[in-house]
Design a binder for these strands. Structure first.
Lengths: 205, 205, 205, 205
DNA sequence: TATGAATGAGCGTTCATTCAT
DNA sequence: TATGAATGAACGCTCATTCAT
């Protein structure tokens, strides 16, 4: 049996280490909360001493910053593509929800952190972009819902603001229980979720 | 001579001050998170010094404990009444959701704390009851949903576990934006929410 | 033999503790430098733990701040009295120098800190007043020297700027070796110093 | 075959790089203080990484050590020549002061470091030579002053110890404001300074 | 009941130094 | 010669908690 093709490198290549640490940090932040997570804990899980983290990062804060902005960057790439596609209101909602669950699948930890911490973090100028993103998010959803009501594809008299809040929260809160590689693919979860929101769980009488 | 079981004349516990402090603490916990809230901050808002809180409470932990268990106590009083009423599945769901929004109305801060902190807190034995409550909660909802599917009032093939999670999270997360005395009464919010979950937002074709 | 009149107080009265700690801190700062002095060291010498200092003071920085501004406050009270007295140039110089050595006598530690640290500290906005003081100081001395040259009591052609620097530094640097209660009173030191600066050490030929 | 005593082709110590780094370090130490200067800062200004300094030097401490001992070496070469020249007291003082200002001109940074840090550093055995130098310095000046008083060229009753301290401090403290290549040559500054110390600034009446 | 003062553990961060490459 | 990555001790500071008064 041939030896594994593990390269004879003694130490891991440089820029990957950052990403490793960041992934570790994201997991710990997601599991225990940003404030409750100590840099010593992150360092432990990354197999180094607390001080060594500061060779790679400026501060604990800049770690969450990097985690969250990377996630939001990818999220908006996906969202913008959907919003630019010229779909109908129902199809836009379907695409946004599906895209959201895909992001949860790919950035579970980041989404969980985002969901739990954005309100506290956004008070600092450095995290202004969290509020900005929230605003854009609201505009995209609210606009689509209103368009749908106007077009007669969503119920007349729908409280779009209330609906937006329900939909937004339910989607993101899924990051708190979703486990990648579990029974349901992101697309399957999106399908079920959309079926509930669009058509309800009650049998039509 | 038997030892007195109570000496209410020497150290009157002044139950009103306790309640005041507890209400203050709940607001601060809800606004800034449990970990990020210092006892000094609570004391400040209560008009006393940090050390003085310890005359009334054992610890910061016992403050959240009291806040959360008081809330859960009332919640289960309401839920148990609903579950014991022998309603049909759809009516049970409607009653549970309405009861939940009423609790959010009355215990907004406690619900927000519960929603944000229960996972961390539940790791400690003292907060075992949070997990227990979660389990009972799950049983009540899951049972009702299954009963509804069996009775043909909810869609056949509904993933009840997934539905439960969606419903649960959306209801409680409302505590993060709900403001008592705002435009919507709890009953109105419940109605809108139930309309969405039961019948969907799409126009039936 | 009667017992000492030590009052039966168990703990020291409140506001004096601040002053005690401040005096201790000043000594340690003067002896080892501001940067090299740890708050633990100050706390040790004050008979408490490092964290306890923060009950009395905001930060290590605010300790030096208080030390230096108290010193400069008193210094300028003395200087302003001299400058307002309408003395001749020579008498003004004599009074300023005497006043300076008196301040060194009363605030030896503060003067030593000032002398050693002002340049670094003054880069921070909080210590702007150190630069301001330096400027006023320069104005007072330079003005007096120029007045003296114009009045013919100081040598014609004297480089007043150079003279100012020499005089300023020599006076303050004395704080690094002066020990209150030593052989020389502040007034005696001032007298000797003035004799050197005004009339020189050489025998007139 | 005898082992080579030197292999200049393999690890040439490149003495110029050392000197460059040392000059850089001296500037930074002088500008910001020894303690407040990080090796990273020195490395930055020298165009390398912090760790790389340790190829050239054992430690931060050995950098100041080299800076200060080089300066003192040259200083004493000059002083010893003056002291061995058999000059009269006044001429000796003049020559020592002039020599001192020349050293400030050539080793401004080193003198500034010396002036600011010698007391702290001298507590370590490694820097014993700083105290030794101080002692020799004191002896040379004190002896000359006493000789001058005995010879009747300096005032009778002069407190030589006090005078020594004033003179010493004023000379060295000039390093904190002196800028080589400025308006005044070292010799000019020495002349002005000597005029002040020897004959005073007051007009003789 | 509440205060004033302190404790002590732990936190995020800095920094001189090491060392394999 | 120099780099990149890490170490480990220490630092300034925070905070829940204690306790004599």
């Amino acid at each position: 049996m041939p030896k594994q093709t593990k390269k004879p490198q003694v130490t891991a290549p440089a820029p990957e280490r950052r990403a490793e640490i960041l992934a570790t940090a994201a997991e710990v932040f997601a599991a225990h909360g940003y404030n409750a997570t100590t840099v010593r804990r992150i360092a432990d899980e990354a197999g180094m001493l607390a001080g060594s983290l500061y060779y790679h990062f400026d501060s604990k804060e800049s770690m969450v910053d990097e985690i969250l902005s990377a996630f939001l960057g990818e999220l908006w790439t996906g969202y913008d593509a959907v919003l630019a596609a010229g779909l109908g209101p129902r199809e836009t909602i379907e695409a946004l929800v599906t895209e959201s669950f895909r992001e949860i699948d790919r950035h579970r930890a980041a989404v969980a952190i985002y969901q739990k911490e954005w309100r506290q973090l956004a008070t600092q100028p450095r995290f202004q972009y969290l509020s900005d993103s929230q605003t854009r998010f609201e505009k995209a959803w609210l606009g689509t819902l209103e368009r749908g009501v106007a077009a007669g594809v969503f119920r007349d008299g729908l409280d779009v603001r209330l609906t937006y809040r329900f939909v937004r929260d339910t989607v993101w809160v899924a990051a708190s229980w979703y486990r990648p590689g579990g029974l349901h693919s992101p697309e399957e979860i999106a399908r079920q979720y959309l079926s509930m929101v669009l058509d309800g769980i009650a049998v039509r009488t």
